[in-house]
Amino acid sequence: MEVRTIKVFTTVDNINLHTQVVDMSMTYGQQFGPTYLDGADVTKIKPHNSHEGKTFYVLPNDDTLRVEAFEYYHTTDPSFLGRYMSALNHTKKWKYPQVNGLTSIKWADNNCYLATALLTLQQIELKFNPPALQDAYYRARAGEAANFCALILAYCNKTVGELGDVRETMSYLFQHANLDSCKRVLNVVCKTCGQQQTTLKGVEAVMYMGTLSYEQFKKGVQIPCTCGKQATKYLVQQESPFVMMSAPPAQYELKHGTFTCASEYTGNYQCGHYKHITSKETLYCIDGALLTKSSEYKGPITDVFYKENSYTTTIK
């Protein structure tokens, strides 16, 4: 009895394709271990004539594949690729409408935090270190965002349907971005203890939790000093293409032309909904596939993004 075979390709990165001759009487799992086709788990399936010449994702289970996976995804987590594939199996079914010149995501599976993050990423200057993220990001900007969303979920250790947080998501993504040249110098002034300067680099240099107003941050924000008295913390120097200011959701007025974009969060910790506000020729609110415009805006804002380049204080 002759062994019926077909020729397929296996890959971990969709760049390096490895030619395989597979036995049609055995499952993919018996031949390769966990195997995925377009995100779908085909591990328990036997090869079919229609699979001839198709590319299958496999887990990096030998040295060659491990090197290829690390170079593309910059992670050695053995569960990463499987999590990416199972997320992709959902995100490829989502709709990605162009809204006001940006790629958004039609609401499904509690994905409003991903839509808000995706919209924000198209408006701030950011370059990702893992080629996987950078490639998928370019495709997302062009309207094909399924891979990018699935990668975000995998890097953030999230599953489809789980509630997510924009600030946490951005923080994970910033860790995989090139923020080497970003720098922030802060000064804390206390009447009792004097003053202390701190220099922050990388992710810490672009994120701040405690106030939404970048102007206020430049002037000074009140913080408790270690001595128990009130101290003032203010920005001395900022070198970065953008800054992200966050605070627990509270009524906040966004003035046209003073910011790049913002995240609105309605609801409580267990259950809520994100919308995205962007400042173009007027203010726009993007909620999944829905767009509304207004000249002014007041609502429960939790993150505001500002364009920056270089700032030095005039406070002496």
Rank of each mutant, 00 (worst) to 15 (best):
E2M: 09
T5W: 12
I6L: 14
I6P: 06
I6F: 14
K7G: 10
F9Y: 14
I15R: 11
N16L: 08
N16E: 03
L17E: 08
V22P: 09
V22C: 13
V22Q: 08
D23K: 13
M24S: 11
M26V: 11
G29A: 06
F32A: 09
G33D: 02
G33Q: 06
G33R: 08
P34K: 13
P34N: 13
T35S: 10
Y36R: 03
L37V: 09
G39W: 06
G39N: 07
D41S: 12
T43A: 13
K46S: 12
K46L: 13
H48R: 12
H48S: 13
S50G: 12
S50K: 13
H51A: 07
E52N: 11
E52G: 10
E52Q: 11
G53F: 11
K54H: 12
K54G: 11
T55I: 09
F56D: 05
V58W: 07
L59E: 13
L59G: 08
L59T: 11
L59V: 11
P60N: 09
P60H: 08
D63G: 07
R66G: 11
E71N: 12
E71H: 10
Y72W: 07
Y73K: 04
Y73C: 03
H74G: 09
T75L: 06
D77Q: 07
D77G: 06
P78L: 09
S79D: 15
S79K: 13
G82Y: 12
R83S: 08
Y84A: 07
M85A: 05
S86A: 13
N89K: 14
H90D: 07
H90T: 12
T91P: 07
T91H: 02
T91Q: 04
K92I: 10
Y96H: 09
Q98D: 06
Q98M: 15
Q98V: 14
V99L: 12
L102F: 04
S104G: 14
I105Q: 00
I105S: 00
K106E: 15
W107H: 03
A108E: 11
D109L: 01
D109W: 02
N111D: 02
N111H: 00
Y113C: 13
L114Y: 00
A117C: 08
L118Y: 09
L119M: 07
L121E: 02
Q122P: 04
Q123I: 07
F128A: 01
N129T: 08
P130R: 04
P130I: 05
A132S: 06
L133I: 06
A136V: 02
Y138C: 14
Y138N: 12
E144I: 00
E144Q: 12
A146V: 04
C149N: 00
L153M: 11
L153N: 06
C156A: 09
N157Y: 12
N157G: 12
K158Q: 02
K158D: 03
T159G: 09
T159C: 14
T159R: 10
G161T: 05
G161S: 04
E162W: 01
E162H: 02
D165A: 10
S171N: 14
L173V: 07
H176E: 00
H176Y: 14
N178A: 11
N178G: 08
D180A: 08
K183R: 13
R184G: 12
N187A: 11
V188W: 10
V188G: 11
V189A: 09
C190I: 03
C190T: 00
C190V: 03
C190W: 02
C190R: 05
K191T: 14
K191Q: 12
T192D: 15
T192W: 09
T192F: 09
G194H: 02
Q195C: 07
T198H: 11
L200N: 02
V206M: 01
M207I: 04
M209C: 15
Y214Q: 06
Y214R: 03
Y214V: 10
F217D: 04
K218C: 04
K219H: 04
G220A: 05
G220Q: 01
V221A: 03
Q222C: 09
Q222H: 09
I223D: 07
I223H: 10
P224L: 14
G228T: 02
G228C: 02
A231D: 00
T232A: 06
K233Y: 04
Y234Q: 08
L235F: 02
E239V: 12
S240T: 01
S240D: 03
S240F: 00
P241Y: 03
P241C: 03
M244C: 02
M245Y: 09
P249Y: 01
P249R: 08
Q251Y: 14
E253W: 12
L254D: 04
K255A: 12
G257M: 08
T258R: 09
T258F: 08
C261E: 05
A262N: 07
S263H: 14
E264N: 03
E264T: 06
E264H: 05
Y265W: 04
Y265P: 00
T266E: 12
G267M: 14
Q270R: 07
G272L: 06
G272T: 01
Y274T: 01
K275S: 08
K275A: 06
T278A: 10
T278I: 08
K280R: 14
E281L: 02
T282P: 04
C285W: 00
D287R: 01
G288P: 02
L291Q: 14
K293M: 14
S294P: 07
I301T: 01
I301K: 00
D303W: 01
F305N: 03
Y306T: 00
Y306F: 09
K307M: 10
E308H: 04
N309L: 01
Y311T: 11
T314A: 14
